[in-house]
Design a protein around this nucleic acid. Structure first.
Lengths: 221, 221, 221, 221
DNA sequence: AATGAATGAGCCTTCATTCAT
DNA sequence: GATGAATGAAGGCTCATTCAT
């Protein structure tokens, strides 16, 4: 898939271009780092391996990142943050039913994160938060708080419009997000040990449960 | 309890003769290891630190465990497995409503794992499963499969007795357990970054949602 | 001269004793470090080489010194400082002519430092002072200031007793010490390039010059 | 003077075409290298720093010097050697008293070396001679031997003319030069740690001492 | 001629593991 | 059984050197 650094030496055809921009951080490097950090964890990932997977030498990493930890932080920043702005935009423009908005949020999360290599980030953060409090705090403040804000707005909108029952919004956010995150974490860790959870069905079931729990029961009458 | 390593050096005369059979693994060691593995992750935990916390010398660890990985496995084995048998016993003896049985399962999990130092184990497993497939497999086969079996029995019982709607049991198991695990993982990782989730309310909300989703809707009419 | 680490492995007879005291810094290590620091300079000396010369493994160095710089500092501390107290004692007890006292000081310096492996320390300090301001300051405060104090006392004594002409004491100290230091530095660096300066004759000549410059000229009349 | 590397990037259009023959070594480079070698020592000086101080890119250094060591040698050659010829000329033409000639030699050394950035060269040579025997030998043969030759001629002249007492000329050379060199070394290393030696007074004192030691004592009668 | 991104060998430092006591 | 000094392999990081542009 990714050409090994070794072969690159002999087969100098498909080499990475030598001239590059020093100020912008090449995404090959963070992509390789993301893969390996998710797979092995931060401490167990060697910079040699990241460099090899990115097709560069070890020293090259240090042209773009001060040290291993800085690379870790860059992986997180680059991976998740850009997605949030787009989601916020979409939410703001939507005008239909609130329950549908919840559905779109969950599906969007699945398509852009859960079913992507980015699904590994939550596991990574969870696994390393104690060792990198600064990164954890950053992730909390920019990703978690902001993500919760998205869902909070939808829930409040639904309650206001009488679509949802009055409920403890913060708790609801927790309960709604938890299975999504757990799914991502599961698929980044133990899933290979047993049967693969069917993500689509899982999400559907979760959403159905929610629909009953969230909504006022007009339809039932 | 355990004499500090320091004092042991000076007062080596009046030492309590610490007789331990080589086959019985002292729980101080696994307890110390559990704490540190959960806190720092496997790779970032030094055997020096484990030994220091357990109040023994580093060499002593090797009297009971072949190597660091064996210690890791012992931590998992010793921590979780013993709890499952007890739970299975209780489930078997219960005779009341199935929904109440589900509630007891969740509450029992919370009291014996979620609100214990053992809450860190799921995070640990998730974080290290890729590096220790063998341990991951062990955990999967003995803890996850067995735990799912517990819940599966309850759900089938409920369906059979007409208390629960017919449902995809495996998916339901996933959806029911996910928030619990996520709660444990959260409290073992990022919780300190923001507001502490109130576990009791979280569990209650989760259970209420479930109740509506699981049960046949007689009451509603 | 010093058995290489390699041979020590095979010929396990003359091994360094395995059991040692962790709190006291073994002088083999600082001795080896002194030799190599003087010979190659701080940066160009590899810890491997120091360890090999001391007959231990590289890791052992870290049992006794936090890092390379700490080892450097220990070399300086251990090497020179102990000698000063003894010299101060001797000076205080002496009761004869001041010029003779000066001579004893110079000769004593030669015997205990200049003609010893310690002769390399001045070169080392000079070469590395800019990179290790802290060590340089330490050396200045404990060795240089104290050494100057020794000579200052003698000069003042001589002036007071009318043996020496009145003179700018501080300048005299500089002028008196400079050739000694230069001799030590020379012998630690370039001496091998050309003819070896004859130290005894050099010191004698220096002393003779001084004698004429320092003393009142009674004898000349 | 030399356009900074930064501006060169942006304003690369109106650059002064910097034509330099490969055989002529630009003195900006050696000057920058001298400063840094003296300040940090050879090993601790990075080529990046030298290039930055000279206002060129790191690669440019390799257009003029084969490697770091060659640059080191060039620094020494370019720094000191040119001064000797001029001094030899002056000595040859002088016709007055020999003691005055000694004085001029010392003062000239002070003005052209001791009080210049070149004062750092002796320290540098001393510090690195063991690592670069070839450079040390070169320095010995061209600078030291030749410098000693200068002084030797003066001393022999003085003895011949009856101005100086008969003396061991080689030893005298050592004793005369040592304080000068020590002064230069001191000012290149530890001087900042304590009080600054007053160079003028130091040299004067040294010279006065010498005058008494060197000269025949006619004047005393 | 000049640049500076890329390289990779080398060194300091850590830490799991061993073993003499 | 217990200790802890010693080991040495491994990994993060640096920096002299190269080379495509």
């Amino acid at each position: 898939m990714i050409p090994a650094a070794q072969s690159a030496k002999t087969v100098s055809v498909s080499r990475t271009p030598r001239r590059r921009r020093k100020d912008e951080q090449p995404s090959e490097l963070t992509a390789a780092a993301l893969d390996l950090f998710v797979e092995k964890g931060f401490a167990a990932t060697r910079l040699d391996d990241i460099a090899a997977r990115a097709g560069v030498s070890k020293g090259t990493l240090y042209l773009y990142f001060d040290n291993k930890q800085a690379l870790f932080k860059a992986v997180v920043e680059e991976g998740i943050v850009p997605l949030l702005a787009a989601a916020e935009q979409q939410m703001a423009e939507y005008e239909g039913a609130s329950l549908e908005l919840v559905r779109r949020l969950l599906v969007g999360w699945w398509q852009q994160i859960g079913d992507t290599r980015l699904a590994g980030v939550p596991k990574l953060i969870v696994a390393e938060s104690r060792n990198f409090p600064e990164v954890a705090q950053y992730y909390h403040d920019t990703v978690i708080v902001r993500g919760r804000g998205l869902l909070r707005a939808v829930l409040l909108r639904g309650i206001e419009r009488g679509e949802f029952r009055p409920l403890d919004v913060e708790l609801a956010i927790d309960v709604i997000f938890a299975p999504l995150l757990m799914l991502a974490i599961w698929r980044s860790s133990l899933s290979y040990c047993g049967r693969e959870t069917a993500p689509q069905a899982f999400l559907q079931t979760h959403f159905d449960l929610l629909a009953q729990g969230l909504c006022t029961q007009k339809g039932k009458e």
